[in-house]
Nucleic acid binder design. Structure first.
Length: 587
RNA sequence: GCCCACGUAGCUCAGGCGGUAGAGCAUUUCCUUGGUAAGGAAAAGGUCCCCGGUUCGAAUCCGGGCGUGGGCUCCA
């Protein structure tokens, strides 16, 4: 983690280059806008940013001017000079320049009496370095966009203008990166979701409320069937519970006290009843568990549901299908004895990995999210937290899975393992989690009967394996760029008759394939074959079965796959080929 | 919620320094029956996001909303 103003020293030359480019940006900005105050400017993945406070707001249209000033400074061959001065001298320097943010950083962040500064021409920054030798080394960079960012990441502090840029060792790499951004744009699930008619958002329905169009609904139903079957096979019991519950339920769980900001306001009835749209499924599943008295012999009890959840995320937070206000979670709550926890966690991880692997998702990582030292944010005893953390760790390590630690990313009731995936733009988000929880069983006084007949408290493992359908579908759209594997594609085969004379045969072919539960369309429009091929190619349909007089005669189909490959086949062998591909969920 | 940008036909977009708008694709109808990525013609389609203000006149200028995108903060 880099800290404010005193970024971790790094040996990575690319990081150094980007960091130096950030300084170059600040140098250009302070020349063009003498009243600008600069905050911090670290390297980040693929580039860098620098935060400024401008007298007058600037916009993206100001970037070209700033960038050309940067190029001029780069060509001027200005050295990066490190100066170590006393704290007082540093304070004096920045006071003279009116750089309040830097003063604040020296106050709060710098310990000891020595302060390290970097000078680039007239520009002076509080900085540990290292840097390149001269601005001349900075050649392949580009400013990308402006954004708002709170000073020191605090909502209550002033909002600065952040300028993002990218920088690379060579022009070639920069070109490649710009190309990557362009490609990412094409894969964007918001764009493809519209083109392929997968989902829609409509303000008349509500912000962040996903409308699954027929194509999207087909994909989702296919995923649902698969997931539920896999879970039933592994001993999960699927339930269906209401989207609403009495507000008191969430008061008892503690969610209301902590999360009422992101919960929908309760519905009030005249008789005083208050109903709440559920933000998560745990309390309902706890109620399910409580329907009978469980013996230790029953445990683990695994209650699963494709549960619809409602969270009132801030409007600025919403993003396509990735961040929404209502989503359906492949959720489960496992009630088990303390010594079953590790194996349950491990199976949950394995199930998630199985889902990912069938879907071909490879680019994801594990994060062990633990609490930080702000005690008030977390409920439970130190011992419970430590035990839970140790168990999660052991589960991960016994599976030889590499993970990083997310300090402060835990749930309020316990630590968790997060599966982090990245979208087409390499933005990271949590797809699903596995959590160990001692708190809710206590709050709801859950019990099971142990071997000795005593009443014991189960441990609750919360787990998602697939994640939310909205988020995962968005991810899959981007991963496949819309070219879904055959088992998922809304239209698996389209039959294209060349002339009207083949319509009957085309429908016969379609019926044969539908008999194998394949999703088939017949394109009997009065259009040329070439036109039909083009249209279906745009839909990335896996197979086009083209039928002309020759095929009718021979009871064949001429298959064109979406890669453009053509092969002549009997109807029967094509039918069984596709059916097998679908049954095996081949990619 | 905050910062910046954007909002014109179903979609992608052009235009407009104030005089009520245009293309391509899609849609509908007709012609066309064509062997592996766009056959032809015609028609229809707009409260230029919404509400106020300025003006003889606003899609255009100003203000306020709403929505979308990129960030920030948050994410049980």
């Amino acid at each position: 983690m880099s800290h404010y103003g005193d970024h971790e020293a790094t040996d990575d030359p690319l990081q150094t280059l980007r960091h130096s480019t950030a300084h170059l940006l600040a140098a250009a900005v302070t020349e063009l806008y003498p009243d600008a105050k600069y905050g911090i400017g670290p390297p980040v993945e693929d580039g860098f940013y620098y935060d400024f406070q401008f007298g007058k707001p600037i916009s993206e249209s100001d970037l070209p001017a700033i960038e050309s000033r940067m190029r001029r400074l780069a060509q001027a061959d200005i050295p990066f000079v490190k100066e170590v001065v006393s704290r007082d001298e540093a304070i004096e320097e920045f006071r003279k320049r009116g750089q309040d943010f830097k003063l604040e950083l020296i106050e709060d962040k710098v310990e000891g009496d020595e302060v390290s500064l970097y000078r680039t021409g007239d520009f002076l920054d509080l900085c540990r370095g290292p840097h390149v030798r001269s601005t001349k080394e900075l050649k392949a960079f580009k400013l990308l966009r402006v954004a708002g960012a709170y000073w020191r990441g605090d909502e209550k502090k002033p909002q600065l203008t952040r300028i993002y840029g990218t920088a690379w060792m060579t022009q070639r790499e920069l070109d490649d990166y710009m190309k990557f951004l362009e490609e990412a744009e094409k894969r964007d699930h918001k764009k493809l979701g519209k083109e392929l008619k997968i989902f829609a958002l409509d303000e008349r329905v509500g912000l962040g409320q996903v409308i699954w169009l027929p194509n999207g609904a087909t994909i989702r139903r296919e995923l649902e069937r698969w997931i539920v079957d896999e879970e039933l096979r592994r001993g999960y019991r699927h339930v269906i519970t209401p989207h609403l519950a009495k507000l008191d339920l969430y008061k008892q769980s503690g969610h209301w006290q902590l999360y009422h900001d992101t919960m929908y306001p309760p519905i009030h009835f005249e008789d005083g009843e208050e109903l709440e749209l559920r933000p998560m499924n745990c309390p309902h599943h706890i109620i399910v568990y409580g329907q009978e008295l469980h013996s230790y012999r029953d445990l683990p009890v695994r209650i699963a549901e494709l549960g619809q959840n409602y969270r009132l995320e801030k409007s600025g937070e919403l993003m396509g299908m990735i961040r929404v206000r209502s989503f359906n979670l492949n959720d489960a709550h496992i009630f088990c004895t303390p010594d079953q926890v590790i194996s349950e966690v491990r199976s949950a991880i394995e199930l998630a990995n199985h889902f990912m692997s069938v879907l071909g998702v490879k680019d994801y990582s594990y994060r062990l999210s633990v609490r930080d030292d702000v005690k008030t944010k977390w409920s439970g005893t130190d011992e419970e937290w430590e035990t839970a953390e140790a168990m999660l760790k052991e589960a991960l390590e016994s599976l030889n899975l590499p993970y990083k630690i997310g300090v402060g990313d835990a749930a309020f009731y316990g630590p968790k393992i997060d599966f982090q995936v990245r979208d087409a733009h390499r933005r990271e988000f949590t797809n699903n989690t596995v959590q160990v929880d001692y708190q809710l069983p206590k709050k709801f006084e859950l019990e099971y009967v142990a071997v000795d007949g005593s009443r014991q408290r189960p441990v609750l493992v919360h787990r998602g394996a697939f994640g939310a359908f909205e988020r995962m579908t968005a991810y899959l759209i981007e991963q496949y760029a819309g070219a879904f594997p055959t088992w998922l594609h809304p239209v698996q085969v389209v039959v294209i008759p060349i002339t009207d004379a083949q319509h009957d045969y085309a429908h016969l072919v379609a019926e044969r394939l539908r008999g194998l539960r394949l999703r088939v369309e017949v394109d009997d429009r009065s259009e040329k074959m070439q036109r039909k091929i083009r249209d279906w190619q745009a839909q990335k349909v896996p197979y086009m079965a083209i039928v002309g007089p020759l095929e009718v005669e021979a009871e064949h189909v001429n298959i064109r796959d979406r890669g453009g490959k053509q092969v002549d086949s009997t109807l029967e062998s094509f039918a069984s080929m596709v059916a097998t591909e679908v049954a095996e969920r081949r990619r």
